[in-house]
Design a protein around this nucleic acid. Sequence first.
DNA 1: AACGTAGTACTACAGACGGAGTGGTGTCAA
DNA 2: TTGACACCACTCCGTCTGTAGTACTACGTT
Lengths: 192, 192
Amino acid sequence: MRRNPERRQALIDAAIEVLAKEGARGLTFRAVDAEAAVPPGTASNYFANRDDLFTQVGGRIYERLLPDDATIARSREGVPDQTRYAELMHEVVGRVSAFNSGYLALLELRLESTRRPELRAVLTERIREDIDANIGHHAASGLPGDSTSVLLLYLALNWLIMERLTLPDIFTEQQMHELVDAAVERSLNTRP
Amino acid sequence: MRRNPERRQALIDAAIEVLAKEGARGLTFRAVDAEAAVPPGTASNYFANRDDLFTQVGGRIYERLLPDDATIARSREGVPDQTRYAELMHEVVGRVSAFNSGYLALLELRLESTRRPELRAVLTERIREDIDANIGHHAASGLPGDSTSVLLLYLALNWLIMERLTLPDIFTEQQMHELVDAAVERSLNTRP
DNA sequence: AACGTAGTACTACAGACGGAGTGGTGTCAA
DNA sequence: TTGACACCACTCCGTCTGTAGTACTACGTT
């Protein structure tokens, strides 16, 4: 088990690409080696077995999907109102669906987690953290809408991205844009 | 290419189970043969190649996820109000997540459709039909809420089922129940 | 009722591919 | 000199597709 962190990260990034391109079953040591353009056998030195590979990718992939520091900083600027919030959500949807392979890989991992308890445990933890962070962030912003609003938004936007990435002809760009706006609007403007 | 429709259907059903259990890459002729408990080589006689197998499964799986006639009949009874509508949505979520392997198989197919244009075409058509039917059905019911409401509900419920099937520990049963209610409520009670 | 034919179920096999794992070699740094 | 690491070669194993060939069954014909 090798310890070179840069190389390990590069291998994990390669694994994400492989997941998106070939699916979960296609994620093998050989495929990762090829994708990362390292000599065959390298990945085998960094991960004990395929299970370990899945788990490590599951642990890191969420970090790659989160906004970078610059984006976070920008998100804290300005007055938090509905327009601002909608902009943010567009940013999230845009960023996540731009990192195409990352989200597809996450979907593959979710399905694979049906068969791998360790992977499921890792993903559950990461995603719960993310959801809690979103709820907390929203509460701190002082905008209307309770945690249920945030969750409904979370649900809708996730499937919207899913739809865009897997069956892009179902909705037009225009429709998707409107759906994001509508989701934000209805999330914030709740009836008593 | 054999023509026995019952046997073909049985093989497709077996393929759905295989998809859910083993993932898209695990869907092979041999695996289908084994799942359907028929001699090896049988599936190979019913589908020209793997691509054909995927496409045929994609064409049928949606039928297995739709409500049966009895459920449709019941759904037309009673006065259409919000309570009734919520019941219906609970029925949908319950039915679809009860047919566990069917929905998982559909998710696998969606991901696989990234790599198979024919499959993508089939799925796109089926899903668009379903969405249009839902919008039409809702419009005919006379309940408040426009097509955007229906779409947002569609998005949220789909991801909710996804969450329940792949990472069941993210939300409690209680939470999921509340989310369905909240989604219906907010979908119907829109602000001008 | 016997027969023939077509469609289908089943079996077996050939050929090929790809992946896991392992042991070994060269190299660089402490 | 020793240890960690990148890199490479090789073997074993499992599995997949496609096809050829045989056995069965149902049905129509005479």
